[in-house]
Write a protein that binds this DNA or RNA. Structure first.
Lengths: 144, 144
DNA sequence: CATGAGATGATAACGATTTTCATTAGCAAC
DNA sequence: GTTGCTAATGAAAATCGTTATCATCTCATG
């Protein structure tokens, strides 16, 4: 977390942006959360520490964290943007339970490689991808 | 297209739904389009043939086509729902050009199989998935 | 051809996100 | 410190795709 703050500080000064208490608070709160958070969720948490904070500020800063390489936007397809840690948290795909919504991060080197090849077959140079695997987790299946 | 209409007709009567001129027109227009369409786009086309049509009707019917198995919703992640043909048009993934937006439909049996295995490794029973490959197509790369 | 339920069209409502705008406050130079 | 420039903030309005509401219309069936 110290490292992230340092990176962020450098990003701010390099881009002539300012260090504000709101920014610190939002970043802090974001870094402490290990799970994906939506702007709304983060706003609710942050509000407890500083009720005067505006939700536009949370939206604005989450976007900023992404630009600074500290956060990554995740689209689980429900119309709500979520953010996950990006620093020292490399690319991965998501396995999502249709029952309880639980998400698991997964990577498969072979799938990644095959994707690149499929793209090449069609003359595309792959830059990135989004893979969401939907299913039912063990617990949810037991309940049925 | 004849087949699709027949399926739709059966779906309607089986579900006590009615056959209306608007429905016919929207279905017709949808079936003629080969590319993905958003509700908005379809509405614009349909309006030319029947300016009195409401856009809610287009939204409603696209949803209905999906339920009847004639359409499939595609989420390219830009916040707009698109629909593609579903009848005799099996599952596939999408390769999307970051430059011009062109999309290509792709399938890779090995990737599909590996996905299933990855899911199983985490105790999940895979039901479906969404894979979007983003890159730059040949033409866009040449332009640079 | 009456009748009842589904369908439609216009419009308001929705929810997530963005913009606007007046005000506040970092921060670098003096 | 004080100043001055400009970014950042908070509140509220605006956006945009989509859905809900509701009065009216119109299929399909008896």
């Amino acid at each position: 977390m110290r490292e992230e703050r340092e990176i962020f500080g450098k990003y701010l000064s390099r881009h002539n942006l300012r260090d504000t208490p709101q920014r610190e608070l939002i970043l802090d709160t974001f870094l402490k959360r290990e799970e994906h958070v939506s702007a709304e969720e983060l706003y609710d948490i942050v509000k407890k520490r500083d009720p005067s904070i505006g939700q536009a500020t949370v939206y604005r800063n989450l976007k900023l964290f992404s630009e600074a390489g500290l956060a990554r936007e995740v689209d689980l397809g429900d119309g709500v943007a979520r953010y996950e840690h990006s620093y020292k948290h490399p690319h991965h795909d998501h396995l999502i339970c249709r029952g309880c919504g639980k998400t698991v991060e997964v990577v498969d080197a072979v799938i990644e490689e095959l994707q690149k090849r499929v793209a090449e077959k069609y003359g595309f140079k792959l830059t990135d991808h989004a893979l969401y695997l939907y299913g039912n987790c063990e617990e949810c299946r037991k309940k049925e």
